[in-house]
Design a protein around this nucleic acid. Structure first.
Length: 173
DNA sequence: ACCATGATTGTTAGA
DNA sequence: TCTAACAATCATGGT
């Protein structure tokens, strides 16, 4: 019985309006970034968030990290970051879902950590303090960490088992 | 001297 | 629902 994946019937018609900006201009999406970044340093109002967790790298980035090494190794002459991006993106699309699976898995894990970090970050974030009152919240909350090696937490260090991969449904329509 | 940019795709959060 | 911007990287250029 392979009824295991009957859900494949109709994923979702919402696709109707999926990707309205598929080929949206790749122009600089961070145009304002420059302003923002600079402002952050210049303006104190834009408090810097040292604790602010950065967005977890997507499967593509995870793959890119490794790809970069290889690419640079075979192309030590190439110094343009865009070169790696292009080559990486091209190959990424060339990879099969199964191949990207391990990368996605890792990316998913990263996200888990991101959520956790976000939790701590949220904790630090003061509840909208009306005016520009810089309130240095003493973070003695999480500071009290003993040695909780008991671990148990699901997010333990998991050894990467590259050996056994779970090839799942490749969709055999 | 230092910061932003370029290019890739994915993901996340805000409007 | 949809949009926009950011995540890494690294040499180079502009101010």
């Amino acid at each position: 019985m392979k009824g295991g994946k009957g859900k494949g019937a109709l994923r979702k018609e919402t696709r109707s309006a999926l990707k309205p900006v598929e080929d949206r201009k790749m122009g600089k999406r961070k145009a304002t970034l420059k302003d923002d970044k600079r402002k952050a340093k210049k303006d104190k109002k834009a408090k810097k968030d040292p604790n602010k967790p950065k967005r977890p790298p997507s499967a593509f980035f995870v793959f890119l990290e490794e790809f970069r090494k290889t690419f640079k190794k075979e192309n030590p002459n190439v110094k343009a970051v865009s070169a790696v991006g292009k080559a990486g993106g091209e190959k990424w699309k060339s990879m099969s879902a199964a191949e990207k699976a391990p990368y996605e898995a890792k990316a998913a894990k990263r996200k888990s950590e991101y959520e956790k970090l976000m939790n701590a970050y949220n904790n630090k974030q003061p509840e909208s303090s009306d005016d520009d009152g810089e309130e240095e919240e003493s973070e003695r909350s999480k500071s009290e960490v003993h040695d909780e090696d008991a671990e148990g937490s699901g997010q333990g260090e998991e050894e990467e088992e590259e050996d056994d991969e779970e090839e799942e449904d490749e969709d055999d329509d």
